[in-house]
């Protein structure tokens, strides 16, 4: 075995016999078998009515439903995020009234079913036919007659957004708490103001914890919009496909149409989520130094403005990642 000691000769590879895994093979065959049977049924079972799926997948009503569903998701998430930021800060406040109201809000909206809340919002104009501005139990200053000219859109967004704000508030609170105390102390010691510390130091770090569950919540919201018929709001994707299905007495192909669109949107959302997560992971997930172009660094040192060493982004935070 000379070559064992001679560093320059190629080593004799071990070529050991690997352990066999018959169980893996058997289970893989079973899964592939089921999959093949299912695929076959997709093509051969006439009840799927792929022709109908094809007819309706780009139907105006369906596409409008997709747009409304996206709008509902977007609008209620924006509302929820704004409220949740407020709630999370109130929860951290020194003011006990803020802390207490934030807690109660979360308690109420998490503790009741979204369907019930949506029904309530739909009936809000019945529950409160007028809104009076004035001193409680005292004289009234201004009186409104409530009405909903939007045919359920505003109640739907309020219902979805307020409910979601309770969940997001908890996510944001956990995110803010996850940032080490030493971070704000270091920033304070540098003379940074509270607002800047929050925006430039705490939030960008909290985002790493906040983004993944918020992405999941967004995907959840997309599907929860299918409940707005409780309000009732009747233009979203689920309502649209149900209405079509009832008209032509073919529920299955239209369920497929709806499922296709929901899947497509969630897939796109997942891609977006991946990129946002990668962005906020920098400084934690990265192990490769950001390349500082040495020439650009020299130029900067010599006082020449350099776009390369640190391209300035327009956003206030998080900014300037050396590419």
């Amino acid at each position: 075995m000379d070559n064992h000691h001679d560093r320059h000769a190629a080593p004799v590879l071990n070529n050991a016999v690997p352990v066999r895994h018959p169980g893996r093979w058997i289970s893989a065959i079973i899964i592939v078998g089921f999959l093949a049977a299912f695929l076959q049924s997709l093509f051969t079972n006439p009840n799927f009515r792929w022709d109908v799926v094809g007819t309706y997948i780009l139907d105006t009503k369906v596409v409008q439903g997709v747009v409304w569903t996206l709008f509902l998701t977007f609008a209620s998430m924006v509302l929820a995020i704004i409220l949740a930021i407020l709630l999370a800060f109130m929860r951290q406040s020194d003011n006990p009234v803020f802390r207490w109201s934030s807690w109660t809000w979360v308690w109420f909206f998490r503790g009741t079913p979204i369907y019930t809340q949506l029904l309530f919002w739909g009936l809000a104009t019945v529950l409160y036919p007028t809104i009076v501005l004035g001193i409680p139990f005292g004289p009234a200053a201004i009186t409104w007659v409530t009405s909903d000219p939007t045919h359920g859109l505003i109640p739907a967004i309020l219902g979805l957004g307020l409910n979601e704000s309770a969940y997001l508030a908890e996510i944001f609170r956990a995110g803010l708490k996850s940032v080490d105390q030493g971070q704000s102390e270091a920033a304070e010691a540098l003379g940074m103001t509270k607002g800047k510390i929050m925006r430039r130091i705490i939030l960008p770090q909290a985002m790493r914890v906040i983004v993944p569950p918020t992405g999941n919540e967004t995907i959840g919201m997309l599907k929860t919009t299918s409940l707005v018929l409780a309000v009732p709001f009747t233009l979203d994707l689920t309502f649209a496909t149900n209405a079509l299905a009832n008209r032509i007495y073919l529920p299955i192909p239209l369920l497929i149409v709806a499922a296709f669109w929901y899947l497509l949107i969630t897939s796109l959302l997942m891609v977006g989520q991946h990129f946002i997560e990668a962005y906020y992971g920098k400084g934690v997930d990265n192990r490769v130094p950001a390349a500082v172009n040495p020439a650009a660094a020299k130029a900067a040192a010599a006082g020449a403005p350099s776009a390369e060493a640190e391209p300035d982004l327009k956003m206030d935070f998080p900014e300037e990642e050396a590419k």
Partner: peptide, 14 residues
């Protein structure tokens, strides 16, 4: 500080 407390999402320069 004892535990440095650098901002982890920023480079040394930043």
């Amino acid at each position: 500080f004892q535990r440095f407390n650098l901002f982890p999402h920023k480079t040394a320069m930043q």
